[in-house]
Design a protein around this nucleic acid. Structure first.
Lengths: 143, 143
DNA sequence: AAATCATTCACCCGAAAGGATGATTTGAAG
DNA sequence: CTTCAAATCATCCTTTCGGGTGAATGATTT
């Protein structure tokens, strides 16, 4: 970042120097001001693009790979018609729990969980829980 | 994209016009050429940054929301002792394929896949494939 | 009141997954 | 040449999943 600004400053200084030199030596009377401005514009546009790239390029954070704030895509959630309870099952499913474990955690019977799961598979267009989880992540329903 | 270029052109024209107007009206004798160049430079740098953003902004691909750069954590990969073949199974597993499908895709028998899977579960300290996938993601072994 | 939907639970059955164990082959390392 | 890990496949057995179907209850909407 600091290096980027430094390089930018240097290139800027160099460009100014170059332009001034050219101006006083050869071009002052030969080139119109419009062309002059044009050259400067193009140069600094390129510079700006390059800078923009450097600045906005995310640095890789090693400890928190895909951390960052996860926001549930409510729109798709309603579009798919997934209910609250079904979503709870989906979450626990994604954590790798078995249906029985999910049932225990939600204080319902195994059959109930299986029903919710089946509905989820339909709504997420998948036949297996691994697929359903994959799909839910794609749809930003779960982190 | 075309819109971006159009807007860029318009802003550029406007800037040139503005500068020329200012030049002929007030500033020609009062501001030195350096300051003049500086103003142009800053303007076009900002323009360049904005353009760079527009151009390089990946369009949202609906199926791959949190795409972005994924780099396999090789260190952990060797630490866990997961072999090439096992990793291949893991990848396909994460895609939601069944063991049979994985077997077909890798041209091996179902039993082989199951063996690899079992080894994976041990190395990833999990009993279920959903758990294994979850764990692998945590360890940055898969995206 | 009737229709709709979410939630709950049940039963059955076949497919898929997982655990345990053993065996063969092959390529790399010592 | 031996040793070892990786990769391959097998068998047996248990558990978990998933599909299909049906049904009761309660809340909300029409």
């Amino acid at each position: 970042m600091k290096r980027t600004i430094l390089i930018y400053s240097l290139v800027l200084a160099l460009a100014v120097f170059l332009l001034k030199t050219l101006e006083y030596r050869f071009l002052f009377r030969q080139l119109s001001a419009e062309i002059y401005i044009g050259i400067i514009g193009v140069l600094f546009t390129i510079l700006g693009i390059w800078m923009g790239q450097k600045i906005t390029r995310k640095k890789k954070v090693f400890v928190t790979p895909q951390a960052g704030e996860f926001k549930v895509n409510e729109k798709i959630l309603t579009e798919t018609g997934i209910s609250k309870r079904e979503y709870e099952v989906l979450e626990l499913m994604a954590k790798g729990l078995t249906n029985q474990e999910i049932a225990d955690k939600l204080f319902v019977s195994l059959n109930t969980v299986k029903t919710h799961a089946s509905n989820l598979f339909i709504k997420l267009q998948s036949n297996r829980r691994t697929q359903a989880i994959q799909r839910a992540k794609e749809l930003q329903l779960i982190p």
